Amino acid sequence: MHGSSHADPGSTPDGVATPLTTLVTSDDATPAGEGWDPGAVHGYPGELSAMLIPAQALQAKIGELARAVAADHTLESPPLLICVLKGAVIFVTDFARAMPIPSELEFMAVTSYGSATSSSGVVRILKDLDRDITGRRVVIVEDIIDSGLTLSWLVKNLATRGPAAIDVVALLRKPEAVKVDVDVRYVGFDIPTEFVVGYGLDYAERYRDLPFVGLLGEHMYR
């Protein structure tokens, strides 16, 4: 995995900036084969073509992201983590536990209409927040950013509710797929535009339970 500096850098004790975002390419994936099947032990034999980001790397990165978000927190009230259902559930629970300061959790579910390639797609809220966010620092917790269209709409919607600040933390981002510019302050990994599953990411509601991010075999969706 290669260092990259797409997100705001953190800093080391000696004051040297360190990139928060790690660039992961297809070359970093560990392909299945020679008796090794990354999905088999979790009940998905023969379905994944490779492991892209191991569980240990995910947890280490989540710790980095949590410390960075906490270091930037200046309000007396704790940050309000808004999890976008369903994909970010696993990420947000590990993220909240890795935070060195208290945080509070809220959940939203949204769905987008129109074609995936259309920026005019309408977004509808399926589950809204349970509380007022006026004066709070809101941290939207996303599992993955691809087009950015729904996230862009969500940021604008929440901004109308009077929060003190809105930040976005995303575990994964597909830079080549982004269609709209969204200010994402904290990004864990920039990944290729391949079909990824695991750690909350699904295909037909399967694979969310994998502890790592893997590549789904083409034979499973084509």
Rank of each mutant, 00 (worst) to 15 (best):
M99C: 15
E34Y: 08
A170P: 04
L126F: 00
S115P: 11
Y207T: 06
I133Q: 05
V92E: 11
V139I: 12
V89L: 15
E34L: 10
T193S: 15
Q56D: 04
G114F: 07
T117F: 13
G15R: 04
V89C: 12
E142H: 01
P175C: 03
V84L: 12
P175I: 07
I144E: 06
P13I: 06
M51N: 06
V141K: 13
I101S: 14
D72A: 15
A57Q: 10
T22S: 06
T93R: 10
H219T: 13
A66D: 05
A60N: 04
A98E: 10
A17S: 08
I53M: 01
W153Q: 00
D183I: 09
D181V: 11
V168R: 07
T25L: 12
R97I: 03
E142G: 05
P163T: 02
M1L: 03
T193R: 12
E104H: 12
L215Y: 00
A170R: 01
F212Q: 00
I101T: 13
G15W: 01
I82V: 15
S26T: 13
H2Q: 14
A66E: 05
V84M: 09
E76D: 15
I191W: 00
T21H: 07
L129W: 10
P211Y: 02
V110T: 11
E47K: 15
L81D: 08
E64C: 07
A165F: 08
L58D: 00
K156R: 13
V139G: 02
V180E: 06
G200F: 04
A96M: 15
G188K: 06
V123I: 07
G200L: 10
T150Q: 06
A165S: 14
A164G: 02
Y221W: 14
T25C: 03
G15T: 01
W36A: 05
A60T: 10
L158V: 08
S103C: 15
H2C: 06
E194S: 08
G198A: 03
D28W: 08
R136D: 06
V178Q: 15
V41H: 10
G162V: 08
A32L: 01
R161D: 02
D128A: 05
E142M: 02
D181Q: 15
L151F: 10
T93D: 15
E64R: 09
A66P: 08
P163L: 07
Y186W: 15
P31M: 05
F91S: 04
L105Q: 12
L75D: 14
P78T: 01
L52V: 13
V41I: 13
P13M: 02
G121S: 07
D28R: 09
S119D: 11
V139T: 03
I166Y: 05
C83S: 13
L52T: 01
A204W: 01
L52K: 03
E218C: 10
V138W: 06
L154Q: 03
G3F: 09
S4Q: 08
P175W: 02
R206Q: 14
V178S: 12
V24F: 02
H2F: 07
Y199Q: 02
K174Q: 13
K127T: 06
S49L: 02
L149Q: 11
N157K: 11
S119M: 12
A55H: 09
A57Y: 00
D28K: 07
L210F: 03
E194V: 07
S120W: 00
G148H: 04
S147G: 11
V92G: 08
K156A: 15
F195N: 01
G39K: 00
M220R: 14
